[in-house]
Design a binder for these strands. Structure first.
Length: 373
RNA sequence: GCUGGAAUCGUCUAGUGGCAAUGACAAGAGACUGUAAAUCUCUCGCCUUCGGGCUUCGUAGGUUCGAGUCCUACUUCCAGCA
């Protein structure tokens, strides 16, 4: 069983430590989205330097390229990517939602590869096998995200997710036994809570997931901050408190991180910070700015004063503006360093504030400034 | 000097009788939440009560119901010949 220590609580919020075979994660923590075994535009050394504790890769993408066997041959995701720290994998379930032309059945999901059109299928069993081959520390159960927000679809997706969870757990048990026999490091399974915007379904899903006694929990299918805090309150009041909870995919907006942590989530991942960085939308304590705007052409101040990331310590807004306008690769690198640092650091600060009992003040002060515009 | 060719939005460009005029770039702005995203969307002559109105394709005339498109002259540029 995955070891998780809680150091301090504040209502549903908690500060803790997840102990993985590749090291500790001090929570709450922001996990970098490394979909294809890389955080776009950043090296793993840069990720370490900016303070990232863990990364999350995507099973779907790694199955397609380079193939999970190759990652196993390389010695696993951490070694392959030179990350050397704790790793998560997403199951591929999200792609059911995000890709066109997927055929979903009780057995699993059939896709055509978006790369070469090859037919391709993920089942709960194959997702588990793939994640074990990838060798991430923490796996997500293969779940089903509804394509619409209708109650009927949500309910159906939730029930399917539960049925698949049973199969994921069974397969995981086999694979764990095999690994144990071969003296290989442990890998852990998170069940994923679904139920969409319907809190009674969320409650039902949380109970079901908890009953399966997984190592932790993912909370999935969240696409908007509307009602999220209340939903998390419902879910995290039901989930056993001695196991870690990962809020899947949320964290582009700082308020999501605060609301998530406040309501009992321990880790987060989100593609938003790096995607927005590549597109020139950069975080500051006073809100996001678009560095491509002409008003920054002559702005020789650092992107965000007081920020101690490599970008802010060394470069000006005018320089970043120039790099973006001339489409230099360095623009995306520096911007990604900053944005990733910003969210990682913000969640680290949330952790500190929980530890010293100042979370509520920190949240109020941060959000009123960030969203003051 | 002669003979050809060319002049269209900041730039390059489409356009051969119905056109406020094509595409690209540049410029201006917006979006982005378990990444088919170094992507996508909008604006880009002037004015607008969003119906439309006005002024445009080197300059000046002309033909025509109608001209960026045809004709004449001029200006500038390019090529060849002197």
């Amino acid at each position: 069983m995955l070891k998780f220590d809680i150091e301090k609580r504040d209502g549903l919020a908690r500060a803790g430590i997840i102990h993985t075979p590749h090291g500790e994660i001090y929570t709450p923590a922001f996990v970098g989205a490394a979909t294809r075994a890389t955080v776009k535009a950043l090296t793993m050394q840069e990720m370490r330097d900016l303070g990232s504790q863990a990364i999350l890769a995507n099973t779907y993408h790694l199955i397609l390229r380079p193939g999970t066997d190759l990652i196993k041959e390389a010695g696993g995701l951490a070694k392959f990517s030179s990350w050397h720290g704790p790793t998560f994998t997403d199951s591929g379930g999200f792609q059911i939602f995000s890709l066109p032309n997927v055929k979903i059945s009780e057995n699993g999901v059939k896709f055509k590869s978006h790369i070469d059109g090859a037919n391709f299928e993920i089942t709960p069993e194959s997702s588990m096998q793939a994640q074990w081959a990838i060798g991430s520390d923490i796996h997500m159960a293969f779940d089903h995200l509804a394509k619409s927000e209708s109650r009927q679809d949500m309910e159906k997706a939730m029930h399917r997710t539960h049925a698949w969870l049973d199969r994921c757990a069974a397969e995981n048990e086999k694979l764990a036994a095999m690994a144990h026999k071969n003296n290989e490091p442990e890998q852990y399974l998170y069940a994923v809570v679904q139920g969409g915007i319907f809190n009674d379904l969320r409650a039902e899903s949380a109970k079901y997931c908890a009953s399966k006694n997984p190592d932790g929990f993912g909370i999935g299918g969240v696409f908007t901050a509307d009602g999220m805090a209340e939903m998390l309150q419902t879910v995290n009041s039901i989930l056993p408190e001695n196991k870690p909870r990962h809020l899947l995919g949320m964290g582009q907006e700082p308020i999501d991180l605060f609301d998530g942590a406040e309501n009992g989530c321990d880790t987060f991942d989100c593609v938003g910070p790096t995607r927005m960085a590549r597109n020139g939308s950069l975080y500051t304590l006073d809100g996001r700015i678009n560095i491509k705007n002409s008003k920054y052409k002559h702005d020789f101040a650092p992107l965000m004063s007081g920020c101690d990331c490599e970008c802010c310590k060394n470069y000006t807004r005018a320089y970043l503006h120039h790099l973006f306008k001339t489409d230099e690769i360095t623009a995306k690198i520096l911007a990604s360093i900053h944005n990733e640092h910003f969210v990682v650091h913000t969640v680290d600060q949330i952790r500190e504030s929980i530890l010293d009992g100042t979370f509520k003040d920190y949240k109020a002060q941060f959000l009123s400034r960030y969203y003051s515009k």
